[in-house]
Amino acid sequence: MNGSAIPIAVISVFVLWFSVGIYRRGRALRTRGVHTQATCVNEAREKSGAVTLLVRFQAQSGAALQTSVGPFRYPPARPGGVLDVIYDPQDPGNIETPDKVTNGRTALAFRLGSTTVLAVCLVLIVLGFLG
């Protein structure tokens, strides 16, 4: 069992790391996010067909900001079009369309699940070294 506990623990650490990042970014948008309208400047299509939009908007501070948002399967705007966005004033690169801002439950579930799996693996690893 020890042989499989180590790779599973490593995978759990990566899942935990990514889920914490996703949860924090979403939480920032939910708690201090600012709703505004952005103008689509350009779009980039990936090989998979997903589209990322380059948007320009004015921050609360008055600064003109430009960043990318997406990817989208069906983009909400084309170049020259306007779309609603929510951005984090402390991290303007953290931007989403309102429909993509989640409640955080999925990321929280992954955090709890990966933490539990990691704890079990660490116990198995320690018991293996002690036994």
Rank of each mutant, 00 (worst) to 15 (best):
T97Y: 10
K100A: 14
Y87C: 09
R73P: 00
S4L: 15
A107C: 06
A5N: 05
C121W: 04
V117N: 00
R25D: 14
C40I: 13
P79M: 07
Q37I: 03
H35K: 13
V15H: 01
G33C: 01
I11N: 01
R111V: 12
V126E: 10
P76Y: 06
V15A: 08
K47N: 11
G113N: 03
D99P: 10
G81K: 05
T102H: 08
P7T: 12
G113L: 15
P92E: 06
R32I: 05
V41F: 11
S19P: 10
I125E: 07
Q66Y: 00
E43Y: 06
T106C: 03
T116N: 03
G80A: 07
R56T: 11
T102E: 12
G26N: 15
I125M: 11
L118C: 04
S48C: 02
P98W: 03
V126T: 06
K100I: 00
G3S: 12
V82Q: 13
L122N: 00
C121L: 03
V20A: 10
I6A: 12
V34L: 08
Y87P: 04
G93P: 05
V69G: 07
I6H: 00
V117E: 05
L130K: 06
V51Y: 08
N94E: 05
W17R: 03
S114Y: 07
V117I: 15
E43V: 02
Q90N: 13
E96Q: 13
R73E: 13
A38Q: 04
A9M: 11
G26I: 08
N94Y: 08
V126P: 10
T116Q: 10
R24V: 15
I95D: 00
R105C: 02
G80V: 05
A38K: 02
T67A: 02
S12F: 02
Y23I: 01
A119V: 11
G113W: 06
G93K: 08
T52P: 06
S114G: 07
A38M: 01
D99N: 11
G62K: 10
L83G: 05
V55A: 00
V34K: 02
V15S: 04
E96S: 13
Q60P: 06
R27L: 09
R30F: 08
L122I: 12
L127D: 07
G70C: 14
C121R: 01
P79W: 12
V117G: 09
T39R: 14
R32F: 04
G70D: 00
L124I: 14
R32A: 14
A107D: 04
A77Q: 01
D91A: 15
Y23C: 06
V101S: 04
R27Y: 06
K100E: 07
V120M: 12
L122E: 02
V123N: 01
L124D: 00
A109V: 09
Q66T: 15
L118G: 05
L65C: 11
R78N: 04
G70W: 00
H35E: 13
P75Y: 05
D88N: 07
T67H: 07
A109C: 11
Y23D: 09
N103P: 09
R78L: 10
V117S: 07
E96Y: 02
N42S: 15
S12C: 11
C40M: 05
G93Q: 08
L130V: 15
G49T: 01
P7H: 08
F72R: 03
G62S: 12
T116R: 00
R111S: 05
R30S: 15
Y74F: 02
V117L: 12
V82H: 08
